[in-house]
């Protein structure tokens, strides 16, 4: 049996479905060695999620069985309670493979399960091959800037999948999965690491999902220099991002940082202004569909990676562009 830890989300229409990375994880799980013994989704019932609706969606992506984990402590997320619950589900299902999407929660909960079971866990996997007991996997290091082939030898194999490594594909003729409500026994002391409360921090456009990102780096030169970039972003309906140099100099808050240790972006176009394009930054920008670089250095890595490049001073070009767009 393959278990897939799933996270639910609510669509704009108010439907409760699996989050896209969870659908991708189920899609990957269907093709894994051992899938013939069945694929089961695991959802944690927080008392608010519509388990029936989510189970139906899990069925569309290949789950034959859905475990709904039940406990009073699940009303609030907790890495330890969820990790211990996943361990209980693994035992209940007799799972030999456990998959989670490598999201903040998915990766964290799977790591807690791995720690409790003292089993190996391979993180951010993109591909699995097997010709026997051991698995050969492809995974990413350095935020995707280096690829690793790894071997996994374990009776129960735990892998987190790099989000978007595979596309989510629904079954042509899905069957309604069997829903199993599973009352988990938990050590109440694990409540120590449950969420106390949540505060809304931002209602603006999210950098991760912005259709246009205007990024600034060392070449911007100052906090004030970003005003031009903000004007351009506003005109294009986008968000402002920055490189690590800009946050380290205190020009921008860290939440604006695009990169391996910041936010990963995937806009239609990334306008990179005065950014050299070091590994750290490019790791977060590589999913941009198109790149326009504005840089004085024609040899800059970002220029090499760009579809279009303006070799010149951003402090002259960006205001001219803003003015021309306004004049249209």
């Amino acid at each position: 049996m393959i278990l897939v830890l799933c996270e639910a989300t609510t669509t704009e229409e108010g439907d409760e479905v699996l989050a896209v990375p969870s659908r991708q994880a189920l899609t990957l799980a269907r093709d894994l060695p051992g899938a013939s013994a069945g694929v089961a989704a695991v959802v944690v019932d927080d008392g608010e999620v519509d388990v029936d609706e989510v189970a139906e969606d899990a069925g569309r992506y290949g789950a034959e069985l859905v475990y709904s984990l039940e406990h009073d402590l699940f009303a609030r997320y907790g890495p330890e309670t969820w990790g211990a619950a996943l361990v209980a589900a693994i035992s209940e299902a007799g799972a030999t493979v456990v998959v989670a999407a490598g999201t903040d929660r998915g990766g964290e909960v799977l790591a807690h399960a791995a720690a409790r079971l003292d089993l190996p866990l391979v993180a951010n996997v993109t591909e699995v091959r097997s010709d026997g007991e051991a698995w050969d996997l492809e995974r990413v290091r350095w935020g995707g800037s280096l690829l690793e082939s790894a071997r996994l030898e374990s009776d129960c194999k735990l892998v987190s999948m790099l989000p978007h490594a595979v596309d989510a594909v629904a079954l042509d003729e899905p069957e309604e999965p069997e829903l199993v409500e599973f009352e988990v026994e938990l050590d109440e002391s694990l409540a120590r690491s449950c969420v106390v409360d949540e505060v809304v921090t931002s209602t603006g456009m999210s950098l991760a999902t912005a259709p246009v990102v205007v990024g600034g780096g060392r070449g911007v030169g100052s906090a004030e220099g970003f005003a031009q970039l903000e004007q351009l972003a506003r005109l294009l309906g986008g968000a402002v991002g920055c490189s690590r140099v800009a946050t380290n100099n205190g020009w921008r808050p860290h939440r604006d940082q695009v990169g391996q240790t910041g936010t990963a972006i995937a806009p239609t176009v990334y306008i990179a202004c005065g950014i050299s394009g070091a590994i750290q930054h490019w790791s977060g920008a590589r999913s941009a569909k198109h790149v326009l670089a504005i840089n004085t250095d024609p040899e800059a890595n970002m220029v090499q990676k760009a579809n279009w490049a303006v070799i010149g001073d951003l402090h002259q070009f960006v205001p001219a562009l803003v003015e021309a767009i306004r004049a249209r």
Partner: peptide, 27 residues
């Protein structure tokens, strides 16, 4: 249970860069 087999750089994303002028024609 996890061991390294090999490391490899990702394939270069082949993109030809169109150099756009920095003046009004570039805008």
């Amino acid at each position: 249970g996890q061991s390294l087999l090999a490391l490899q750089s990702p394939p270069e994303q082949v993109s030809t860069t169109e150099i756009v002028g920095a003046g009004p024609e570039g805008v």
